[in-house]
Amino acid sequence: MLTETGLIIENLSKTFYVGGRTIEALQQINLEVVAGEFVNIIGPSGCGKSTLLRCIADFEKPTTGRLFLNGKAIKRPGIDRTMVFQNFDQLFPWYTIRKNITFALSVAAKSNSTKERNKKADYYLDLVGLSGYEDLYPHQLSGGMKQRVAIARALSVNPKILLMDEPFGSLDAITRVALQKELIKIWQETKVTIIFVTHNIEEAIILGDRIFVFQSNPGRINKIIENPLARPRSLDSPEFNSVWEKVHVHLNFDSKKRKGGGKKQGRAVAEKPLSSGACFFDI
């Protein structure tokens, strides 16, 4: 064990049985995430990256292997690991924005008074730039705003790790870039550990300290890439390109090169075709 404070995953495998077939979603995953680190998981769809996140959250039980957070085995879902999903429906439509957060607070820590909870909710809404929207209902917000609320909610319970499962995957490119910037700012302010799943190379490089590149069939770690870029990171720098090439190579593409200097290209076809902006790899 390298560290007492952090996430350790030992020999994790996960097998699904679907329609009489066995699918090995994850095979022998070993990894460590240090407290305060921002790591990205990238890989083609079906590589088990979401499954890994769900195992950490304990929404799924690993078939074999063990997970430890700060030296303690993970046995059930908990607020020390809060998840931000890709779906916009992760907010409860029957609560106002503030109530969506105070709900989490009231379940997590019953001792707090309503006043304290409201104060805390407003603080985190302010952090994600949503002051003034407290009393609206989720259906009155845009997709990007909903994801901000989800981030605020996930942060409000002071988690050890923030698990982010392609949270910006359904957003338009402009909103996505804005939210990426804000996420870095929030991470720097809160010092929370973040595990961020994406299928977008640029996003992985812009955000993380380390990038876990996954492979599919069976899902496994292909390569762990250190990301030495200083923040704020620019898509145009030559260093960015070299990291991009590295990630790209380990995603097992057939010799396609990234054209140009990392400008917004939209060259390759993504899993989900997005209008423009960042560049995606083929599967």
Partner: peptide, 29 residues
Amino acid sequence: VPATQIEVGKNYGLKGVGLVWKVSIPGAF
């Protein structure tokens, strides 16, 4: 009720009756 909302409920420590009462019932309303 979206599976995501159920998981969010679980994530924040709801289970059993509490989960049904606070998430499933309003979701199914």
